[in-house]
Structure formats: C-alpha cells, structure tokens
C-alpha cells in the first residue's frame, strides 16, 4: 500500500530523518516506535506533505512525493495528528463533516456521521457542542473518526495515547484494534511500545532519524525491552 524509500526529512536547516525505508502492506498495522525526537512525526509529516522531504513515497505504486498536501488526502492518506488538533470552534458534527470534505456523497456522509455517534455515544450526546468542550480522550476519538471520514486507503495515527489516562488509552487502542480487524491499513506512531506492539503486524524502531531495528511484531515479545530502550527507564 505505502512504500517509502530513502526518505530524508528536513525542517529548515535541520535534517530530522536521514534516509529511511518503510513499507506498509495493505490491511496491516505497522508501528513506528521511538523516543522523543527520533523522527516519527517528521516521517508522518513527509507522508502527508506538510514537511519538506526527499526520497520517494509511493501509495499503491503511484509516486506522491511531489504532490501538495490536499492532493495526497484525495489519493487516500488521512492523518490523526499529534495533539489531536480537532477544530475547537466547530461542533463535533462539523468536525466530522470537515473530515469528509473531499467527498460529495452527502447522504452517505450523514449516515457515517450518525454511525460514529452510535459507536461513540458521548460524541453523539455532544454533537452540537464545540469540540473544544470535549475531554482529551473524546477529542482523540473525534480526531480518528474525522480522519476516517475521508474513507482513506491508509490511516496515519500520530501518538493517539499521548497525554491520556490509562483507561482512556485502553479504549483508544481498542478502537484501533477494531479498525485493524475491519481491514483498515494503519501506520501507527507511538511511544507506548508495549501497547503498539500488541496491535501491530510489523514494527520499525526509529533512533535519531534512522531505522535502528525492524521486524515482525511477534519478534519483539511484549515490547518491555524496547520500552526500556525508548524511555531510557530500566525496570
């Protein structure tokens, strides 16, 4: 589905990612793990086109690396960004409608919005309230739902567990597990290695802008060792 080769990402004069190869086959969940500043979010920004990069990014064989942000979304890339970035000043419903901005099928969009309200009753109850009034976990659910409203071929999830209470994190991962079982292709960026490995088929570990290891998720056991490596905490 998504093939990245020799990707270098720069932010002004600084190169954050120094040439990495990543492959996300259709229908799988691939985890991109690493510590703060390892280049995970930079990699996602390069895929969406919001950061400058060299190298090739192929979506279903088509080279999208020269396309502007909007065109990549139309090709089927959707991002649930770090920090959620829901539109605080828009209602919950309006946030979901914005997610479907590239689609024309109004009736189907309305149906899907209702689907999310049934799936997450808390969003349904607050459908007409500004998204800024939601809790962090609810905003994360909304951000993921918004990304899915574009009916993407691949969903990029940037640190969905960041800053959330453990029970809420469990619900978010439950949601991702469910998406995966529905066949949604996912590239998951996380610091929470243990949880991410449990969800994924394949794992890449980023360190200082390079892939330091990769392999089948099963090969990483429960991820405890990796967690120590990423967090620097040795328990």
């Amino acid at each position: 589905m998504l093939e990245i080769s020799n990707l270098r990402v720069t932010h002004g004069p600084i190169e954050a990612v120094h040439g990495i190869d990543i492959s996300v086959p259709a229908g799988t969940c691939v985890a991109l793990l690493g510590a703060n500043g390892a280049g995970k979010t930079s990699t996602l920004s390069a895929i969406t086109g919001t950061a400058k990069s060299t190298g090739t990014i192929r979506l279903e064989g088509e080279d999208i690396s020269a396309l502007p942000v909007e065109a990549r979304v139309k090709r089927g890339i959707a991002l649930s960004p770090e920090g959620r970035r829901v539109f605080y000043n828009l209602s919950v419903r309006e946030n979901l409608v914005m997610g479907a901005a590239i689609r024309k099928d109004k009736a189907a969009i309305a149906e899907e919005v209702d689907h999310w309200f049934t799936r997450f009753p808390i969003l349904g109850e607050r459908r007409d309230q500004p998204a800024g009034t939601l809790s962090g976990g609810e905003q994360q659910m909304l951000a993921i739902a918004r990304a899915l409203m574009s009916r993407p071929r691949i969903l990029l999830l940037d640190e969905p567990s960041l800053g959330l209470a453990p029970q809420i994190v469990e619900r978010i991962f439950e949601m991702i597990r469910e998406l995966r079982s529905q066949g949604v292709t996912i590239l998951l960026v996380e610091q929470n290695a243990t949880a991410a490995i449990g969800l994924s088929d394949h794992v890449y570990v980023l360190n200082n802008g390079l892939v330091s290891s990769q392999g089948r998720a099963a090969d990483y056991g429960n991820g405890a060792e990796l967690m120590d490596q990423i967090t620097g905490v040795h328990g």
């Binding site: 969406t48 919001t50 502007p68 942000v69 909007e70 979304v73 139309k74 959707a78 991002l79 960004p81 970035r85 539109f87 605080y88 000043n89 914005m98 997610g99 901005a101 590239i102 918004r146 574009s150």
Partner: peptide, 13 residues
Amino acid sequence: ALDFEMVRLCGLR
C-alpha cells in the same frame, strides 16, 4: 481561522 494546516489535511485546497 484556527488551524489552516489541518484544513489542508482534510483535503481542501
């Protein structure tokens, strides 16, 4: 008005 980049990430030019 809040987050232009996120609007682009929703696919609007």
